[in-house]
């Protein structure tokens, strides 16, 4: 596994900064159906990642992703910490086992999404980050190799976030609200979308 390119570093930076910029919005979404800390949690984690970005980027790509995962696990807390942490740990793990980018992107992303689902004991349709991550994975599979892949991923993510609004949560804090969770976008779905969009935007800029 080779040391990640400058592209990787700039993508991580952009994604982290984008989440930090979205923190107030994430918090206010979490105030509506959760406990009002999702923005702060993600911000704390992304700041920690930014603080270690040089060290992270000096690692081989698989180790770099695991370091991101570990950093998120150790700093985010809450539900999103173990979940995003598991996502990146699993992505790194997949790359340690004979998977390669960009060819195996859908596979690697799939391992990461599975890790979220396993850690959260949750599936698509429960009004969580999985309701963005799983549709994005589907698009990565179905549109693999297509010239408009990035554009389609972006559309998928944006639409998927909105589709969480009418859902009733059955996982995470919002589930305690019962039917009252309906009508609000899920904060974790939004943060997943922010991450996906930031990476897509970075890739577009370099394309």
């Amino acid at each position: 596994m080779s040391v990640p390119s400058e592209t990787f570093k700039s993508l991580v930076k952009a994604a982290a900064e984008q989440v930090i910029a979205s923190a107030p919005e994430l918090t206010s979404l979490d105030q509506a159906i959760g406990d009002g800390d999702h923005g702060t949690n993600m911000k704390r984690g992304c700041e920690a990642v930014l603080g270690k970005l040089d060290a992270i980027s000096a690692q081989p790509l698989d180790e770099a992703l695991k370091m991101i995962g570990k950093t998120l696990v150790m700093t985010v807390g809450g539900a999103s910490g173990p979940l995003y942490g598991s996502f990146f740990l699993a992505a790194g793990e997949a790359l340690s086992h004979d998977k390669h980018l960009p060819d195996d992107l859908a596979d690697v992303f799939g391992s990461a999404v599975n890790a979220v689902s396993a850690r959260g004991r949750s599936q698509v349709g429960e009004k969580t980050m999985l309701d963005v991550l799983v549709p994005v994975l589907e698009t990565l599979k179905t549109a693999a190799g297509q010239p408009d892949l990035i554009a389609r991923v972006r559309t998928t993510a944006t639409e998927a976030v909105e589709r969480t609004a009418p859902m009733q949560a059955t996982k995470g804090r919002a589930s305690f609200l019962g039917a009252r969770s309906v009508g609000h976008v899920d904060p974790g779905a939004r943060s997943s979308c922010v991450l996906v969009q930031a990476v897509c935007a970075g890739l577009e800029a370099r394309a």
Binding site: R44, V76, G77, G78
Partner: peptide, 11 residues
């Protein structure tokens, strides 16, 4: 103790 209303981390 985690942050306010946020679970502590595994470490």
């Amino acid at each position: 103790p985690g942050q306010v209303f946020t679970s502590p981390t595994p470490d």
